[in-house]
């Protein structure tokens, strides 16, 4: 298949996914509408994670800190300073980007296993910071956003985040935006440089690439997307709490990405969707539902390291982004 046709086709497939998400809101009952809203936001988180892991080959075990940066950046400004939703949302994203940049300056001096442990530790520190400043964050117990801050005016429209359909569509909008951003980043020359770093960093450096700067850019972008997910999550569900900064939330995007397929755009979306419902169903039967997480992780890494979309791509359509 020539590259022009394949681009159109892959755009078409991604558009079809977005459209089916859009159509679903007319048939889904309230419970699943809520679930899918969460899934879409978590999928943004996974897509951000995947930008770093799947395309650049850097496995972070601390992405919860970026999600939390967005969540607390948005939530605290609303709660303590009474910022309006759009401002708080953007502030959350910026917090994540800045944190990503700073962590990157330090952690990107390491690679491989050391990078994993360093990011894990910084995420632990972020969690402890939230717990330590419990006066402002209420730590584990968390904060509930007051209802009067949940409506806002944007471009002449008045939008209320208490309405579940509105939330659903906003989440879909953000997800579409994220897919588009990832799509554009990984298709062109920049994407080629990322893959080159993933496949062989020292060689890439000897081909004239400032690999540190590229990795720093990607980490910052990845952190910003993760923070966007956290920021939206805080504002839409009107709650922030330190549980979102635990190691659990660093492992989840890895799990989603591994399941769906690292280095694909649809993979993390699919992975988030499946894993979310798998856990949802398991939690009806047992309080130890995280057992599913463990089992899936082990099975994936043993038998299915490329994930669902990774396998599809390898077998049938290599052009899938």
């Amino acid at each position: 298949m020539d590259s022009k046709n394949s681009q159109i086709l892959s755009l078409g497939i991604h558009a079809a996914v977005v459209i089916s998400f859009y159509a679903l809101q007319y048939v889904l009952p309230e419970y699943h509408l809520l679930a899918l809203t969460r899934i879409m936001l978590l999928a943004i988180f996974a897509l951000g994670f995947n930008l770093l892991f799947g395309y650049t080959g850097l496995l972070s075990l601390g992405h919860a800190m970026f999600f939390a940066a967005g969540m607390y950046g948005a939530g605290l400004t609303v709660y303590h300073f009474g910022w309006s939703v759009p401002g708080a949302f953007l502030f959350g994203v910026v917090c994540g980007a800045i944190l990503g940049f700073v962590i990157g300056m330090i952690a990107l001096r390491t690679t491989g296993v050391a990078f994993m442990i360093v990011t894990l530790m910084f995420a632990k520190v972020s969690y402890l910071v939230i717990v330590y400043f419990t006066t402002y964050t209420r730590g584990d117990e968390g904060l509930v956003m007051p209802a009067e801050f949940r409506g806002f005016e944007l471009l002449g429209m008045s939008i209320s985040l208490t309405d579940s359909v509105t939330r659903y569509n906003l989440a879909l909008l953000l997800l579409t935006l994220t897919m588009l951003i990832v799509f554009l980043l990984v298709r062109g020359r920049f994407g080629r440089a990322l893959v080159a770093i993933r496949e062989n960093e020292s060689r890439t450096r000897m081909l004239g690439y400032n690999t540190f700067a590229i990795k720093l850019k990607v980490l910052t972008a990845s952190a910003a997307l993760s923070a966007m997910a956290g920021s939206a999550y805080a504002l839409m569900f009107a709650y922030i709490g330190s549980s979102f900064a635990t190691i659990q939330y660093s492992i989840d995007p890895l799990l989603y990405t591994l399941l769906g397929g690292a280095g694909t755009v649809l993979g993390p979306v699919f992975g988030t969707f499946s894993m979310f419902y798998l856990i949802d169903i398991a939690s009806e039967y047992t309080s130890a539902y995280l057992l599913v997480t463990g089992i899936v992780l082990v099975l994936l890494i043993l038998y299915f390291p490329k994930g669902v979309f990774g396998a599809i791509r390898q077998k049938y359509c290599r052009w899938l982004p």
Binding site: L59, G112, V113, T286, A288, L290, G294, I295, V298, I301
Partner: peptide
């Protein structure tokens, strides 16, 4: 890297089995 991911899986399996 794969062993780290796998040991994370083992972590959950042991911990949640203990919870059960």
């Amino acid at each position: 890297e794969a062993t780290i991911v796998a040991t994370i899986g083992i972590l959950y399996i042991l911990q949640q089995t203990a919870l059960l």
